[in-house]
């Protein structure tokens, strides 16, 4: 891993690094430390500086049942969207990997959702699921009132999750396919010699061997369900009906920028950051193990 051939120069590397380091300090480290400061202080409503609040911001956050409802909803959202998206992408990648005639066409289309802005997909799916419009809404013609995400929380959450899962197909597909294609061909051939049929080889050989990629994507998907969900929810439901689709990032935004409760939002920010960092660390440990394994 370590290189042997280096340049040595006392100034040049710093000149090269300076722009990036300055940007990172100004837009990352400074604000993040600010958030820590706010999370432990309380801002006076009429100005006049912040007073030290200790863990009060966190305590009031954790004492809030609405916050816990948001956490639970976020977890459900994350798991559901991840499982659906990865399941579809994995299935498609497995079949594309067989490289039958014409596969290239399928392969390039399966990547497309990666290019789409979450809010743009949100608009399309909102129309698809609109109760008054002629697609899913058509069931209301047969059984009036059976589908209405504008009033039914479950419907709304389901609609957002489906859209989120669709958006993730492209990214997941790329990684799954790459992982599958990196497996040596001789492995499948050995399996065939041992009498395993294609679907057996998928389950017994390919799937276990791409387990590290499955895990990597699992974490990436969970993280993206915290981040990409904002645009989707803002366009599709604005958190409604009656908070049924309010996930952590959305609540953070509402409290911080609509409710102007900076201290509370900062505390929520810290919780979210810790969560994301924890997930990333788990992933790093795994990647490390994988390197040793290889």
């Amino acid at each position: 891993m370590e290189r042997r051939a280096f340049y040595r120069n006392p100034i040049l590397p710093w000149l090269l690094l300076a722009p990036q380091l300055i940007l990172v300090l100004v837009f990352f480290y400074w604000p993040t430390s600010q958030a820590l400061f706010w999370a432990f202080t309380l801002e006076q409503p009429w100005g006049g500086g912040n007073t030290w609040a200790g863990f009060n911001n966190f305590l009031s956050l954790f004492g809030d049942t609405r916050y816990w409802a948001t956490v639970g909803r976020s977890a459900f959202y994350a798991i559901a969207a991840t499982v659906i998206s990865m399941g579809i992408a994995l299935t498609l990648a497995m079949f594309v990997d067989r490289a039958l005639k014409g596969t290239r066409l399928f392969q390039s289309v399966f990547v497309w959702p990666y290019a789409i802005a979450a809010p743009a997909a949100g608009v399309a799916f909102r129309f698809i699921f609109a109760p008054e419009a002629g697609l899913i809404g058509a069931v209301n013609e047969i059984w009036p009132g059976i589908w209405n995400p504008a009033t039914n929380g479950f419907h709304a959450l389901g609609m957002v999750i489906v859209c989120h899962a669709w958006l993730g197909i492209g990214y997941n597909f790329i990684f799954f396919l790459a992982a599958l294609q990196m497996l040596p061909k001789s492995l499948s051939e050995a399996g065939a010699m041992d009498g395993a049929r294609p679907y057996r080889r998928m389950l017994d050989l390919q799937l276990p061997l791409i387990a590290p990629t499955v895990f990597f994507l699992l974490i990436m998907n969970l993280i993206s369900s915290f981040t990409d969900s904002f645009g989707l929810i803002d366009v599709m439901t604005e958190g409604g009906p009656i908070n049924a689709t309010e996930v952590m990032v959305y609540k953070l935004y509402v409290d911080g920028f609509k409710g102007l409760d900076y201290s509370g939002a900062a505390a929520q920010s810290i919780v979210l950051m810790i969560l994301v960092i924890a997930l990333t660390f788990i992933q790093f440990r795994w990647v490390e193990k994988r390197v040793h394994y290889n």
């Binding site: 590397p13 990352f28 994301v276």
Partner: peptide, 29 residues
């Protein structure tokens, strides 16, 4: 490609920003 003392420190300073996407630290930013 350069060998200097703070090399790894700089790498991690930059690398850690990968962990926290903009949406997560939107309030402080």
């Amino acid at each position: 490609f350069f060998n200097f003392k703070a090399r790894m420190l700089c790498f991690w300073l930059i690398f850690i920003t990968l962990m926290l996407p903009l949406e997560v630290r939107i309030v402080p930013t």
